[in-house]
Amino acid sequence: MLNYMRSEWYRITHSTAIYMFTIIMSGLTLVLNVLLYALDKSDVSFPYGTQSFSLSILASGMMTMFFAGLAVVSLLFSGDKKNGLMKNALAFGISREKMFLARCIICVVSSLCSLAVILAVYIGSAVLLLPIGVEPDAVGILLRGVGYTLPMAIAAEVLAVAFIDFMDKELIACLGWYIFIGMLPKCCALLGLKFPVWKRIAGWMPWNYLAEEVNVNMSGWSCMWETPEGAAKCLLAGGIGLILFLIMGLELCRKQEH
């Protein structure tokens, strides 16, 4: 498995995909902050030219991290089946389970490296160019939010690896992923309108709690991870998701073997 990981790491670092993704995402955040800076300088009454507003875009939409993870998996691993990389690895004695676990690890490491650069550009440019705004600790809250959402983002990435590895069509894999990550929680929340038990279950699903328990606007920030209960919920839900999706991925591997 270590050899397989070494080879995959070599492939990723010698291909352009992850660099392009990081440059484009960092570039977009930089453009956003430069734009806010320009608008702030050109109009003194412009209320959005602040760090708080800029950083609130990610803080209020932490699910973006899930989609970013899906994009990284898709960029790194789509086409591997078509290009015969997986069948070669199997022929050289790497089991499907090991391949899946190795790909998860490599993908998470690559994503974390990319995330570090994007966040550095995003937060750095916001701090350098924009005044603080309504939330004096916006940077701290955002960074803590990223930290607490990370386990679930990793879990979502593991699910994406499982689907992209084992489904023949990438579009179907992405749809399947969205059903699990976005639609299923929404359905549970809808059932929760009628049945209290479903409301409790839906409340533990990241897609729902990140939308409902994070309130970020121009009058102030109220983020669930800033309370011990909220932070614990994020970590626990992320941990459960990670275990669940890992088991699911390994089950898919075993299913392919029989």
Partner: peptide, 16 residues
């Protein structure tokens, strides 16, 4: 299988 080499159907490699 570490003692084997294989080309089955099309050869597999990274196009980029």
């Amino acid at each position: 299988r570490m003692r084997t080499g294989a080309i089955i159907e099309m050869p597999g490699f990274v196009p980029q």
